[in-house]
Design a protein around this nucleic acid. Sequence first.
DNA 1: AGAGGGTACTTGCTGCATCAAGTGATGATT
DNA 2: AATCATCACTTGATGCAGCAAGTACCCTCT
Lengths: 162, 162
Amino acid sequence: MADADEKSDGVKWLTPDELDSWLSVVKLMTRLTWSIDQQLQRDSNLAMVEYQVLAMLVKSPQRMLRMSSLAVVTNASLPHLSRVVTRLENRGLVRREPDPHDRRFTNAILTESGVLTLEEAAPAHVAHVRSLVIDVLSPEQLRRLGVAAERIVSRIDSWSIG
Amino acid sequence: MADADEKSDGVKWLTPDELDSWLSVVKLMTRLTWSIDQQLQRDSNLAMVEYQVLAMLVKSPQRMLRMSSLAVVTNASLPHLSRVVTRLENRGLVRREPDPHDRRFTNAILTESGVLTLEEAAPAHVAHVRSLVIDVLSPEQLRRLGVAAERIVSRIDSWSIG
DNA sequence: AGAGGGTACTTGCTGCATCAAGTGATGATT
DNA sequence: AATCATCACTTGATGCAGCAAGTACCCTCT
């Protein structure tokens, strides 16, 4: 037998331990996303991606980012982000402005009202993230979780590009 | 000052390291879900939740589970699962049958065609999971990732229930 | 300067997820 | 035994996500 993990069909299946870990990760992805979304929706009437947009903009110079950059940092596709920003624009939290130097670019800019909304939403959101994630792991565990997540994501990126 | 991590607003914000780790986890959730979905859709015309349904059923006695149990193991809400099973039923991969002893329960049963579909889909899916997750981490890293995921999920569950 | 190619979005269409309300079956209560 | 409460789903309505196609703009190259 060429490989102890391979059955006669030539597929390298997961070991029971690997399967357990993988299913835990799957559970994490669905449940954590859901829980975060719930909290934001309930307390601040925001979807997670909307919160991410506001949070990324407030950290940026001029509280402004190009749509394409914003799409990257919020892990959204450009079509998706475009809709999200339209919704936020209709609520007065963000406005759009074409880049004066190259009108192909569109800048998304956080309004004062957007800053205020984010400031109101942030404490409960941060507390929720703390209670679910940060505070149930030791600093070292959290760091390792982040590192593992990074490794997986960069693997995904290298597959999508290469 | 009562706590070095608290600013004057009384909110315990995330440290830069905590924020980095958290953003990595967020990135993982969105990107990994997306990548897994892409692969399954492209190669097998299945959504991830549909694959999960088939995979959970095939492991069950009689290849059969109650809708409510199936909802738990696939991390789906009952309304969502109901729609998913309807889709799979229309494709002939699953059928429904009311429990003879208590007709409030509905059993979802994997058909032969469903078994075949799963067997066709599994190798590429497993290979994908391997290349993105299992093979980029050491066994110990993977185990720790699983443990951390478990801890977070049980925290979510205790919040939803308690 | 006008055509072609590429970039940076935006939008039409379709299908999916979600909440709330509905349905049918069972058990509990009087 | 008739009503009420509960359970286990299912379904109607609505808004969201995703792909593909479209639009506007810019930069060459001839």
